[in-house]
């Protein structure tokens, strides 16, 4: 693996700096920024796709970004097994370009929602989460189109293949509608692809890396150490 972390950013990305700060703080390395029109990405290391409103989120959140040259490269690398992490808008982009199952649609409340939520880690067999000791972590969410939708057939496939990674829960890990901030199917907050090298999640671990905002994000990034 390369000693490299890349952040792909688009016009309208706005969590790119926050992500870079978190990566620098936790992984002690400076991420490489790749602009959306990058048509040849060599040795990217881990690829991050940050939150924000790529291309204004016009048409549907994430869709316009999927047509950029950099995402074609992301797809190529994904097939080769490169670890890819999409957060918030990054998750939306990964579902729109079909690297991940399902779709992210308007929250049930129809409103943007910004708050801290608890997430139960559903699966620790995967390299994205196996080093996280806690069973439940607390990250902020900030989105209006974060309701994860998938039909029953594909939901079963996600379950059978252990692709569900995070679910919205209580502090103690209870899963119920009460703890579902956006109406996601089965409280799903994050999933991986079948090959388990592409992760998408709506909550923001990069917003939980200091004593003021909570420190649960640190374990998320530190856990990636062996991948780089």
């Amino acid at each position: 693996m390369n000693k490299e972390v890349s952040i792909i950013h688009f016009p309208g990305s706005n969590c790119d700096r926050d992500l870079a700060v978190a990566i620098k703080y936790c992984l002690k390395l400076k991420p490489k920024f790749l602009w959306h029109n990058e048509s040849h990405i060599k040795d990217p290391g881990i690829i991050f796709i940050p939150g924000g409103f790529s291309f204004g989120d016009y048409l549907r959140a994430g869709i316009l970004a999927t047509k950029s040259p950099a995402i074609k490269e992301v797809i190529r690398h994904a097939k080769k097994g490169v670890p890819i992490i999409g957060i918030c808008n990054g998750f939306q982009i990964l579902t729109e370009c079909k690297l991940l199952e399902g779709a992210l649609i308007k929250n049930s409340s129809q409103l943007f929602s910004c708050k801290k939520v608890f997430l139960r880690i559903e699966n620790k067999k995967n390299y994205f989460t196996k080093n996280i000791k806690k069973g439940v972590v607390q990250y902020p969410i900030a989105h209006s189109q974060g309701k994860f939708y998938v039909d029953d057939y594909n939901l079963k496939k996600l379950q059978d293949n252990d692709q569900i990674m995070f679910k919205y829960s209580s502090k103690t890990g209870d899963i119920s509608d009460k703890y579902n901030p956006n109406g996601s199917v089965q409280n799903i907050a994050g999933i991986v692809n079948k090959k388990k090298n592409v992760l998408g999640l709506m909550p923001h671990p990069e917003r939980a890396i200091d004593s003021f905002s909570g420190r649960d994000g640190i374990v998320f990034f530190n856990g990636l150490n062996e991948l780089i």
């Binding site: 706005n14 929602s113 910004c114 708050k115 923001h204 003021f212 905002s213």
Partner: peptide, 26 residues
């Protein structure tokens, strides 16, 4: 109201005005 505002992006918000008499930004 406040839930509809992203008060944390840029990761320097220490307190929003719900949490302190004045909002505090690092």
């Amino acid at each position: 109201l406040f839930r509809q505002y992203d008060n944390m992006v840029m990761c320097d918000t220490i307190f929003s005005s719900e949490e302190s008499d004045a909002a505090i930004v690092r």
